[in-house]
Design a binder for these strands. Structure first.
Lengths: 365, 365
DNA sequence: CCCATCGATGTTTACGTTAACAATTTCGGT
DNA sequence: ACCGAAATTGTTAACGTAAACATCGATGGG
């Protein structure tokens, strides 16, 4: 209905052939000629389809005048290669699948962005395979679906307890790289060096003279959260400091706020390491509302270094994660696999940096 | 360098069979048998490949015992359908392309997430086509690439001045939906009702008794920014209030901070409407540092209602955008086009809601 | 002047799947 | 027991592309 009507006028005799008889010319539900194929171009240019193929792929051995004819015909018909046929022919899709839980977390979206960018640079498209809830069934479903999907390899960005059960469902021939997991004994893993980041954060606070450091951890199901909490505990124990009970949030600023209210009630809590920046933001708010000044009374460190962290009140000291690098290495590792065959499992750690801003200060004597 | 070495030991004999004899079993550069095909399954099950096809697609007319045999053979060989062949056969890819500038903005990633979710629910995968910089060349390149891509339709999430020039390059047969643009006269557009959101924000501030409202706009190239700024100006003019000069930022908290410092220097500035939450965050920080209290001295309103907005100091009054709904409508509109043919151009506006929190208060007399 | 050689182009075939049609088997009714 | 209909299974062809091989004509050396 919305077919612009001027089109009708424009299509006189000459274009009839270009449009040919496709749109709706046959049975309603029937398949119409999908679009212009090499054969169509070949016919118009008066050559064989193989010659068209050669021109399309820039292969040598086509004389200039012929090439010109073919190119003209292509333009006239609006020819575009059919990638399905190409994929079928080559046995490759030039596509990478990304299985993820959601894009809502900063880390995920930044990583995916980097993956998309680097994949594009290598001539690969990326296909997103979202998993509604990270239940086993869903993840398993995603893998199954992916098995039928047009992808040469997969990058998995999910907390991966679930991978245990689903490992069996992973189609054997598919190349995989996993992000943020402990699956390093089964798959190639790329991850931020969570432990080292946490270590830097806690040591920074201890060096400022704080007696010990409270920790607001992420959800227990998260490997990243566990790794950060583990490092926090290790540093305290090595330094012979008391290990306060762990607070837990769900990564959200709100959960950070609730935990912050609890922490604010403890007079001897002078240093908090939050497992991400958003929870740190919640902590800042809670402390502020309880009249405890940051950093004079309490120092706070976050994790991630999201774009806004420098604009919090006060600007947040935090651990910088290089998501772009994670994405880059994922793509490279996966492409290496695709080209050179399966890679050995193992973990590739991207270093972190502590960014010191205004939310940390020396402990008061 | 961080590659853990234990990995090497893990890969032993047992996996040999799943690997089968493909990798490198023939000429080095030659194409190896891509993977198990229907013919392989058919051979093992002792039936024709058509029967395998019927079983794979759950079609009726296959006797139980045969079906069982085929399924067994499938399992044994690890058969997975080849979607390239399927696409070639059907002339459809069951894939939606999403052309975007980046995932870094909250809006984009939330929208993309919703698109991915709803597309998946309809059996469509989504392919991300990132555009490095939104220059004409790049966008044009993305369209060209997309023309060769295995997609049935495209959702464009880019500021679309550029579409003008590239419209011509848009492959004619491709279905398109555009987000956040004024291309409503050429394509179906889905967008948040930017103008109404801005109107609500400004009216809220005026109703609180503020004489006028300053505006911190987004970059001039952004249609969303222009629409918000336009509505801000319109409300002020309708109400007969003075229209202060527009401040401009680049959506970042940092740019908001810089603008905030300027605004803080104007004693008669008591109400600020920032074009997004991140810039509002920067403004909050600037005002705080300059000793102007929010909301007692200055009221601030943002736009987007990002997850953290409720945890700012003070919690931010802002305009809620329903990105999920935008994504949903994009997918529905595009799928309608794919199934029922081209849709009329026009703009589909998703309503917004003002969320009143702690950053706004009545003007002091 | 003839034939080997090379360059340009055409023809055949296969990639994996499935619609359409053909062939075979099974079964119920007489 | 036999016929026809229905159920089940098999065969053929086509989707668009590109590698491999085949053909044709021209060029140049003997």
């Amino acid at each position: 209905m919305a077919r612009v009507t001027k089109a009708v006028k424009v299509r006189g005799e000459p274009t009839i052939d270009t449009q040919r008889l496709r749109a709706g010319s046959d049975v309603p539900g029937g398949r119409r000629k999908q679009r212009v194929s090499m054969a169509d171009v070949a016919r118009l240019a008066g050559v064989s389809s193989q010659t068209v193929s050669r021109v399309a792929n820039g292969q040598p051995g086509v004389v200039e005048s012929t090439r010109e004819q073919v190119l003209t015909a292509m333009r006239e018909l609006g020819y575009r290669p059919n990638s399905a046929a190409r994929s079928l022919r080559y046995g490759r899709f030039n596509t990478i699948g990304v299985i993820l839980f959601g894009l809502s977390s900063t880390g995920n979206s930044r990583t995916v962005e980097a993956i998309a960018t680097h994949a594009a640079a290598e001539g690969y498209a990326i296909t997103l395979i979202p998993v509604g809830m990270p239940t086993q069934d869903n993840v398993l479903g995603a893998f199954t679906r992916m098995g039928e999907l047009a992808v040469d390899g997969v990058i998995v960005i999910i907390e991966v307890h679930l991978l245990d059960a689903t490992a069996v469902a992973l189609p054997p021939g598919v190349h995989v790289v996993v992000v943020d997991s402990d699956a390093g004994d089964r798959y190639p893993v790329v991850d931020t060096d969570q432990a080292d980041g946490a270590r830097q954060a806690v040591q920074h606070l201890l060096e400022l003279g704080h007696r010990t450091v409270w920790h607001l951890a992420g959800p227990a199901e998260s490997f990243a959260a566990e790794r950060r909490a583990g490092a926090w505990r290790a540093v305290l124990e090595e330094a012979g400091r008391p290990v306060p009970p762990v607070e837990r949030g769900d990564w959200s600023a709100d959960s950070g706020y609730r935990a912050g209210l609890r922490l604010a009630g403890m007079p001897d809590c002078t240093a908090v390491f939050a497992a991400n920046d958003q929870m740190a933001l919640g902590v800042l708010r809670a402390l502020h509302e309880c009249g405890r000044r940051v950093p004079q009374d309490v120092s706070v460190v976050g994790f991630d270094d999201i774009a806004d962290a420098g604009s919090y009140l006060p600007p947040l000291t935090t651990v910088h994660q290089d998501f772009a690098e994670v994405g880059r290495r994922c793509v490279r590792s996966l492409l290496d696999q695709i080209h050179d065959g399966p890679a050995a499992p193992g973990t590739d750690l991207v270093p972190t940096t502590l960014i010191v801003r205004g939310s940390t200060a020396p402990a008061r004597p």
